[in-house]
């Protein structure tokens, strides 16, 4: 009798098993994986698979139906919304999941403490090529950036570089972790990425105007709107899929429990009233 019961229970669990696929932003991969790990422990019948590739790749996957949820570190573009409307007959559902201070990193030994938007624009477009020009040592600047399918790449280009192109000398790295690794070994290195990354490098203070007050990328400065490169990290989902196990997972991510994971990973939780 006991083996039969065991088989029946196993069958029941198998029947209830749910697979959720998540694809997109590399910035959000560590957060997504941590969410998946904690959620699967609490919900044994659910499997959550998380992969990166960049926000653009995630949105393409959402469109062709190869993912349930798209992680994106930038808002979806109007042209992509139009494609979703064509495909799903409705706009995709957008969920803000948490806040990020897009950080500018340099090597720990670099004496520079802060940079302004005009200085960052000059550095990343290749007009400023030596740290001396921004008050640092006489050392060539070495640029680290992301692939153009990355939401972080697009966000930085749009909000900091005024949509100008990155310098041709920028080393294109496959993820923020690779950006950090590169800078940690490079005295003249500078790069950008999510606040949850950055062990072994220094996060610079940033000011919007030249000569203006520069602020650290802290939770308080983000909430107060002082740190100038702040963004939401998003989940996008096809309307028809926002039900059942997938909807439950998204609801959990923006619940107190999910937001505790956000904090644990290093991003900033959404204010309660915005969930």
């Amino acid at each position: 009798m006991k083996p039969i019961l065991t088989i029946l229970m196993a069958l029941a669990i198998t029947a209830q098993a749910q697979n959720i696929t998540i694809k997109g932003s590399d910035t959000m991969v560590i957060l997504g994986q941590k969410w998946a790990e904690v959620y699967m422990k609490k919900n044994p019948g659910v499997t959550v698979q998380v992969t990166g590739g960049g926000s653009g790749t995630g949105i393409a996957a959402l469109l062709n139906g190869s993912t349930d949820i798209c992680n994106s570190s930038r808002p979806i573009r109007p042209s992509e919304v139009a494609e979703c409307v064509k495909k799903f007959k409705a706009r995709p559902r957008e969920y803000k999941t948490c806040l990020d201070a897009l950080s500018v990193y340099v090597q720990k030994d670099n004496p520079i403490e802060s940079l302004s938007f005009p200085q960052l624009e000059g550095i990343f477009t290749g007009k400023i090529t030596n740290w001396k020009a921004v008050g640092g040592p006489d050392l060539p600047i070495s640029l680290y950036g992301r692939e153009n399918s990355s939401g972080t790449y697009e966000f930085f280009k749009e909000h900091v570089l005024n949509k100008k192109d990155f310098a041709a000398s920028t080393k294109t790295m496959p993820g923020t972790a690779a950006v950090i690794q590169g800078i940690a070994k490079d005295k003249g290195g500078i790069g950008y990425g999510g606040i949850a990354y950055g062990e072994g490098v220094k996060h610079l203070k940033v000011s919007k105007a030249a000569g203006g007050e520069a602020f650290e990328p802290t939770e308080q400065n983000v909430f107060d709107g002082k740190y100038p490169i702040t963004r939401y990290l998003f989940n996008y989902i096809a309307p028809a899929k926002d039900a059942g196990a997938v909807a439950a997972f998204i609801s959990w991510c923006i619940s107190d429990e999910g937001q505790a994971v956000v904090k644990d990973v290093g991003y900033f939780p959404l204010p309660k009233n915005m969930r």
Binding site: A90, R91, R93, E94, Y95, D242, A247, N273, M274
Partner: peptide
């Protein structure tokens, strides 16, 4: 309304979909 905490993101999405339709 979401920012003010009057409705949740899910409720905003539901309403947006109805309005679009």
């Amino acid at each position: 309304l979401t920012k003010k905490g009057i409705i949740t993101q899910r409720e905003a999405n539901d309403v947006r979909e109805q309005l679009d339709s």
